[in-house]
């Protein structure tokens, strides 16, 4: 069943049809939210709220890229989540072991699933540096650079997603990349050689 048919059924109140659309876009939506918010729990909340909002406001969808329309809901959900966090800042605690309900006091939960510890560490350092730089960007720049560079969306889709003219998207993207370049230069010494600007990554 194609996307448009699912949308039409969802418009007639078919929740199952809408849920199939959710399954198709949830990974993309979660990635965008995670890169914008930097926290899995907050990203999950934002995505769930975005899909609820999308279902309730499905009649405002006027055709075109459904992906861009969903991403618009997600970015709006991220803005709401960031505003909520600003109003009520919280301090994250260490994760709780679901088996016994006690806090995990070792750093074991930090370990990734990658086979090589060195690669995992390098990847983690790179990701940490990038995420840190992303979070230091202004929100309107962050949403654009995440959608274009992290998710690979084209300018038109991003323009519709963030409800901003195409020229503004181009401008924001260029300025965001410049800011990220400046930020990443602070991490050059910490990054693995192949990820350095003067190293093998070029």
């Amino acid at each position: 069943m194609d996307e448009q048919t699912l949308i039409n059924e969802a418009l007639h109140g078919e929740l199952d049809a809408f849920n199939r659309l959710v399954l198709a876009y949830q990974d993309l939506a979660f990635n965008v939210a995670y890169r914008m918010l930097g926290d899995e729990d907050s990203a999950s909340d934002a995505v769930q709220n975005a899909f609820i909002s999308a279902y309730r406001n499905l009649r405002t969808y006027r055709g075109g890229s459904f992906k861009a329309w969903v991403m618009r809901m997600v970015t709006n959900g991220c803005y709401d989540e960031l505003r909520r966090q600003k109003r009520r800042p919280t301090v994250p605690l260490e994760p709780i072991n679901p088996s016994d309900g006690e806090e995990i006091d070792s750093a074991e939960w930090l370990a990734a699933d990658d086979p090589s510890p060195e690669e995992s560490l390098e990847q983690a350092e790179l990701e940490h540096a990038l995420q840190h730089c992303l979070e230091n960007l202004p929100l309107e720049f962050r949403s654009v650079v995440v959608l274009v560079d992290v998710q690979g969306m084209d300018y038109d889709e991003v323009s519709k997603s963030v409800h901003t003219p195409l020229g503004t998207v181009k401008s924001r993207l260029a300025r965001a990349r410049l800011k990220l370049r400046d930020c990443l230069q602070q991490f050059q010494e910490l990054l693995p050689p192949q990820f350095r600007l003067d190293g093998g990554a070029r």
Binding site: V22, S44, L130, F195
Partner: peptide, 18 residues
């Protein structure tokens, strides 16, 4: 730009079906 595109894609931790 290349660094940003190298960021790993995460899977949704759960289904967000309604």
């Amino acid at each position: 730009r290349r660094m940003l595109r190298s960021l790993p894609q995460k899977r949704a931790p759960r289904n967000f079906t309604l």
